[in-house]
Amino acid sequence: MHRWREPELHFQSGDHGLVAIVKMDGERERRRWTVRVWGEPLGGELVEWGGDDLDAGLSRVMAMLRERVPGLLD
């Protein structure tokens, strides 16, 4: 069970013009989780992560968003 340690991804992303999707693919044996974020603040680019540890993935996506658009989620 995942604890969703990065709840601000879900609540703040919509407030800043971003769309976030978390997908679980139960048919895969590896890299079952995919997180994708896109929207106007990213200038048409996509932030994406895939792996097995969703908590780590959400943290990584938040870090990538902060790198690409400083101040966006502060």
Rank of each mutant, 00 (worst) to 15 (best):
M1H: 15
M1F: 15
M1C: 15
H2K: 10
R3W: 14
R5S: 12
R5H: 12
E6A: 12
E8S: 09
H10P: 14
Q12H: 14
S13H: 13
S13D: 07
S13P: 11
S13N: 11
D15L: 14
H16N: 08
G17D: 06
G17P: 05
L18A: 04
V19L: 06
K23Y: 10
D25R: 09
D25F: 11
E27G: 15
R28Q: 14
E29N: 07
R30C: 13
R30D: 04
R31E: 07
R31S: 13
R32N: 07
R32L: 04
W33D: 00
V35I: 03
V37A: 06
W38P: 11
E40G: 09
P41M: 05
P41G: 02
P41S: 01
P41W: 01
L42G: 00
G43H: 01
G44D: 05
E45W: 08
L46D: 10
L46R: 07
G50F: 10
G51A: 10
G51I: 07
D53T: 06
D53E: 08
D55I: 08
G57C: 06
G57D: 04
L58P: 02
L58H: 02
L58S: 02
S59H: 13
S59A: 09
S59G: 12
A63S: 15
M64G: 11
L65D: 08
R66F: 02
P70K: 04
L72N: 05
